[in-house]
Write a protein that binds this DNA or RNA. Structure first.
Length: 1142
RNA sequence: AGUCUCGUAGCUCAGUUGGUUAGAGCACUACACUGAUAAUGUAGGGGUCGGCGGUUCAAGUCCGCCCGAGACUACCA
């Protein structure tokens, strides 16, 4: 006696999850799955490193499920899929976490806490939740190598980054420049956009704003001005350009300066006229004196913005002379007519847009030269205009108008920065406004409330300020990046062409610098004057340079001399102690910046291998570029970009060939999950309750990965019931009978042609499914695969195949038909376990092992049953088993059954009541032959004796004609509606005519129109005298006559049913034989006589007898007070019955 | 503010190159079925396909504008 299929009391996904997990661990299934494929073609996958200083959430299950699915799939397709885990360990959140834990600020480092301690704290902080992450990874069934992860803070990792920086440096793609960044003068530090997005940073403030007059250099008018609005008048002295919108209309207006009453011509955007001039008073006399309420005006000219571009104007506040080419009108795409004047004041040193547009148009920024000879904006780092004494003497002589500037020099641009001032004191903005008012260059001054960012530390307003930064010249390779991007397969495509593509089109240079502490240090050392510099690209190089420095006496010792990477630390502040010696013998200090953490993760293809120090280019290329990566869509401009940029710049290659960007996981109401709202879902709880398989399946099947998922626990439960519950039931059914019949798949496969129609059908559907699922996985469409599998299990396998085949399994001898049924069902289950293995790895494993342990169909090299479904080859479609006509006729059978059941229901005829026949109008010969092949299935399913086909010529049928719009539309266009109405109104004679002749002529508004049979669709609507139903083109009529014989048969079936119920109630085994005694009743007489054998056969009854009630009450010779059971097979009559095992 | 995605039944989602009765599952109601039974079947209610306009004989589907949700980028005179 061989092994039996395992049978279960009920489905318990959590236990399966745990058992299989244990089985995988104990038998090293993951490692072995890798070993098995070692040497095969590689499928390269990159793991995007998460940061372990936060707890994992349910959305991580989503992202990791996607990754796991395709890695498992490719592994089953025969690829070797290495999966190295990784940890992102640098960055601001880590620093903030440490500071919060230790209750310190950056200033305390080296004072309250030693540098070593701080450094150690960062290392600990960043791995705070590593255990939790590992736990989730394992419990959710994500197969990834957690033993040898790459970790971005390791010296080896940093060394590769230095190498890459070195490569960029050599290619001239690295430079130092400045950008306009948020800067807090009060805190003396730049702020990241992350810090600016902290809650409460943007606050409404009331500032003095003004519209200034910029005098136009033109021979045409002597007193014409551009009007430009600013909310920060302190930036006006730094103005070097004005921006207009190319397609905006501008007006030249003759009017007066409201403060000086001087006659002027002003230029402003047409749509904004009404904010300055009353449109109802265009004809006021041109007279004005200061204080008059209404400003008279005359429009003298109109032009487009592009006509203004290039016009020069005089410097508004000629305190400092800029370089050439300043003070021109330029075009700016950001100019609107929402507010202001439609002409934008440009101060390139204090606005990001300003800086960008100025650079594009060759407009110089307004800069000062300080005492140290450095170029500076007009405002210093404490937030005040440079004092005269802080400036370079030569520069003052050449470029500064000391007389007019000195009244303002040294003043703070915001009162908040000046300890001696309060908000009530006059601000610099007001002073400048008043000054310009006197000069006749202010057109309008008013208070204005707007939202302005504040520093989260000091609560004081920030400035946009030019700060030194190191940049990667990504714009130099922009074209190449765009070109390479077009070769990447994005899922969804729109993310690649849209979000990512646009990002590349509008690429700016990558600002690498971060003024932080915990991160990869920028490996560039410079002399103080910046004239000499060196870029260190390896630890080896660092060592050598330090040796030189020690020799020179700049450093005492070389702490980086050992070859043991654990003996030193490339992080700050240790690395800052390194002073190098320049070619000319000067001291060089490290540029204090750190590298953007995104560079860390974008460099992982190389750094995870410690390229080129621990592997050569050939080895690298075996793992580059990736075939597949997946991450949240929020990484488009994060990881996806940095991977792409570094690969393009350094290796002129894509970094990944296929990328799936998944959407967000929201709560069930569509809100973003957040700690604040407390609507987060704990992944451990979900997996604990429903198991990883249901969770994963739900996530993948519910919506496409790239759409946002509204996570609803009820949905997970539905998946458990509907998919896993149904599949479990199907397996249980199989196991129950296969064990009884000892089916272990030892027989040869029953030849396809000898199998029952329904077996061939389910095999056809199964192979169609294999094809579909394989294509979907291959196309990175897991949702399509999951839905197709779910549909197959529920609709085809469980609710049709098994339902219709039940008796083949429990009835009769172990014949070829029975074996065929077992083999067919077994194959379906086995293939399903393989198809679903990527998505539901635990359940699939369980199902597969339960089957294979018994049948041993899959064996390893030692002839033992193979250890895992994940070791098997993904099923390949057997095209020759796919029979589309068969699939179609089975669909037809299902449709007809459904219609008959509906008719029965409507006429209150139970299925147990056999009926004589159904009639179906035949559409054509093929229709008949299709139904003939599935006739038996239909008849037994709906308990009918025969099918009669009615010929189309049968004139009993009432028919209905409908227009075929698709065929008529293109032919008749506008006449469509009239024709459709005419066809609807066809009489039975009209329909006969077109059926007979193949065409008919109709009259539409006096015009003769020829209709072909192919232009109309004819269906049977009714068959008078019968109960009829039609759906689409199929019509079914039911004969509802119940003859005496049919009634008897019905009673027999009722009896069988009751006996079966009692068997079950009494917990008899399905194989037990019984003896049945039923109380005598003359209504049953004939039925029993006629159907005795049938009843006995169905219920495994040895003896069936009608006896007197008294006799029934004697059981095994003992008098009992009441019969074992009573039944009511005939309406209103209750009979005693006694059933006992033989 | 810009870019992208999404908006179809109470909920989650399908919906082919535009073709005329817009589908499925869940939930709800009623009735059946019962050797798979914590399953299943049948029937029923439930829709201005986010809104407005356009193209077309014909629009859930194509185009424009708007509204709403979300993400990213940026933060402006």
């Amino acid at each position: 006696m061989g092994k039996k299929y395992q049978e279960y009391k009920q489905l318990d996904l959590t236990t399966i999850n745990k058992d299989i997990f244990k089985y995988w661990e104990e038998n090293n299934i993951f490692e072995n799955s890798l070993k098995l494929r070692k040497g095969s073609k590689e499928f390269i996958f990159y793991e995007g490193p998460p940061s372990a200083n936060g707890q994992p959430g349910i959305h991580h299950v989503m992202a990791r499920a996607i990754k796991d699915i395709f890695c498992r799939y490719k592994s089953m397709k025969g690829f070797y899929v290495a999966r190295k885990a990784g940890w992102d360990t640098h960055g601001l959140p880590v620093e903030l976490g440490v500071e919060k834990n230790l209750g310190i600020t950056k200033e305390d480092i080296g004072k309250k806490i030693s540098v070593d301690e701080y450094n150690a704290a960062c290392r600990a902080e960043v791995m705070k939740y590593k255990d939790l992450w590992d736990k989730l990874t394992k419990e959710m069934g994500y197969w990834v190598d957690l033993e040898n992860p790459y970790i971005t803070f390791k010296n080896e990792y940093i060394e590769t980054l230095w190498f890459l920086i070195g490569e960029l440096y050599k290619k001239g793609l690295l430079y130092k420049g400045y950008t306009i960044q948020p800067f807090s003068p009060a805190a003396g530090t730049g702020l990241s956009s992350h810090e600016l997005n902290m809650p409460g940073c943007y606050r409404d403030v009331k500032d003095t704003t003004m519209v200034a007059q910029f005098k136009i250099k033109t021979d045409e008018y002597t007193n014409a001005y551009f009007l430009a609005w600013t909310t920060t008048p302190w930036t006006l002295p730094s103005n070097t350009a004005l921006a207009v919108g190319n397609n905006i209309d501008y007006l030249w207006v003759d009017t007066f300066n409201p403060y000086t009453a001087e006659k002027v011509i002003v230029v402003l955007a047409k749509p904004l006229m009404a904010s300055f001039f009353n449109p109802e008073t265009p004809e006021l006399p041109m007279e004005y004196s200061h204080g008059d309420k209404v400003l008279p005006y005359r429009i003298i000219k109109e032009c487009k913005g592009k006509d203004l571009v290039g016009i020069e104007y005089e410097q508004l506040l000629p305190w400092v002379k800029p370089q050439e080419k300043a003070f021109r009108v330029i075009a700016g795409d950001f100019v609107t007519t929402d507010d202001g004047t439609g002409i934008v004041h440009i101060a390139p040193t204090f606005g990001a847009d300003d800086d960008r547009v100025a650079k594009q148009n060759g407009i110089p920024p307004l800069v000062l030269i300080d005492k140290e000879g450095k170029r500076q904006p007009m405002v210093d780092r404490t937030g005040k205009f440079y004092s005269i004494e802080d400036l370079d003497k030569d520069f003052i002589k050449e470029s500064v108008n000391v007389d007019s500037y000195s009244a303002f020099a040294g003043k703070f641009v915001k009162n908040a920065y000046d300890k001696t001032l309060t908000e009530k004191d006059i601000s610099l903005d007001v002073e400048i406004a008043l000054y310009l008012k006197q000069e006749g260059k202010a057109f309008k001054i008013e208070k204005h409330t707007h939202s302005y960012p504040h520093c989260w530390r000091t609560d004081k307003p920030i400035l946009y300020y030019p700060l030194d930064s190191w940049f990667i010249r990504t714009t130099a390779m922009q074209e190449r990046m765009i070109e390479l991007n077009k070769t990447i397969n994005w899922k969804p495509e729109s993310t690649g062409t849209g979000r990512f593509g646009n990002w590349l089109e509008n690429l700016v240079d990558w600002n690498l610098s971060r003024s932080r502490y915990w991160g990869t240090p920028l490996p560039i050392w410079r002399t103080e004057d910046g004239s000499e510099e060196i870029c260190i690209s390896s630890v080896e190089m660092l060592k050598k340079e330090i040796d030189k420095s020690v020799e020179k006496g700049f450093m005492m010792e070389n702490k980086y001399s050992s070859s043991d990477y654990n003996s030193f630390d490339l992080h700050r502040p240790y690395i800052d102690d390194v002073v190098l010696v320049s070619a000319s013998g000067k001291k060089m200090f490290r540029e204090t910046d750190l590298i953007d953490v995104w560079f860390d993760s974008g460099a992982m293809p190389f750094a995870q291998m410690h390229y080129p120090f621990s592997c050569n280019k050939e080895e690298l290329m075996k793992n580059f570029p990736a075939d597949f990566i997946a991450e949240g869509v929020d990484q488009t401009r994060g990881w996806f970009f940095t991977l792409h940029a570094i690969a393009t710049l350094v290796f002129d290659s894509v970094s990944f060939k296929n990328v799936v960007s998944n959407g967000l996981v929201l709560d069930k109401n569509g809100n973003k999950m957040s700690k604040r709202l407390g609507n987060g879902v704990d992944p451990f709880e979900v997996i604990g309750k429903y198991g990883a398989d249901a969770t994963r399946w739900y996530m993948v099947s519910n919506s496409q990965p790239w759409e946002n998922l509204k996570f609803d626990l009820d949905g997970v439960d539905e998946v458990r019931r509907k998919l896993f519950g149904t599949l479990y039931n199907t397996y249980s059914f199989f196991a129950l009978y296969a064990n009884i019949d000892s089916f272990v798949f030892k027989e040869d496969e029953v030849p396809y042609k000898e199998r029952a129609e329904i077996d061939r059908w389910i095999l056809s559907e199964l192979n169609s499914l294999v094809k579909m699922v394989d294509e979907s996985y291959n196309d990175y469409e897991p949702t399509k695969a999951a839905r197709a599998i779910g549909n197959f299990v529920d609709e085809y396998l469980s609710n049709w195949y098994v339902r219709l085949c039940r008796r083949r399994f429990w009835k009769g001898e172990y014949t070829q038909d029975k074996i065929s049924a077992y083999q067919t069902l077994y194959t379906c289950l086995e293939v399903l376990s393989q198809l679903m293995a990527p998505i539901a790895p635990f359940f699939a494993e369980k199902l597969f092992l339960d089957l294979n342990e018994v049948s041993k169909k899959y064996k390893d090299n030692n002839q033992n049953p193979i250890g895992s479904v994940h070791f098997t080859e993904f099923p390949t479609v057997k095209e020759n088993l796919i029979d589309k006509t068969l699939e179609e006729r089975m669909q037809l059978a299902q449709k007809i059954c459904s219609m008959v059941l509906s008719l029965r229901k409507r006429n209150n005829l139970k299925v147990r009541q056999p009926l004589q026949k159904i009639m179906i109008p035949a559409l054509n010969e093929e229709f008949i032959s299709q139904i003939e092949k599935v006739k038996e299935l239909i008849l037994s399913e709906v308990n009918i004796k025969e099918i009669e086909f009615l010929s189309a010529q049968n004139n009993v049928l009432v028919k209905k004609a409908k227009a075929d719009f698709k065929s008529l539309g293109p032919k008749y266009g506008q006449k469509m509606k009239a024709i459709a109405n005419a066809i609807n109104a066809f009489s039975q004679e009209d329909i006969s005519e077109i059926e007979r002749e193949g065409k008919i002529y109709i009259d539409i508004n006096g015009e003769k129109v020829e209709l072909l049979i192919s232009d109309v669709e004819i269906v049977t609507q009714d068959i008078p005298g019968w109960v009829v139903m039609n759906e689409g083109a199929v019509t079914v009529a039911l004969d509802t006559t119940i003859t005496d014989s049919l009634r008897k048969e019905a009673i027999a079936r009722e009896l069988v049913n009751r006996i079966q119920n009692i068997r079950k109630e009494q917990d008899f085994e399905v194989t037990d034989f019984i003896i049945v005694e039923i109380e005598f009743n003359h209504l049953l007489d004939e039925t029993i006589e006629q159907y005795s054998e049938y009843i006995k056969g169905e219920t495994l009854t040895k003896e069936l007898s009608l006896v007197r009630k008294n006799d029934i009450e004697v059981y095994l010779g003992q008098q009992i007070t009441k019969p074992i059971s009573t039944i009511d097979v005939i309406e209103g009559v209750e009979l005693a019955i006694n059933i006992r095992k033989v």
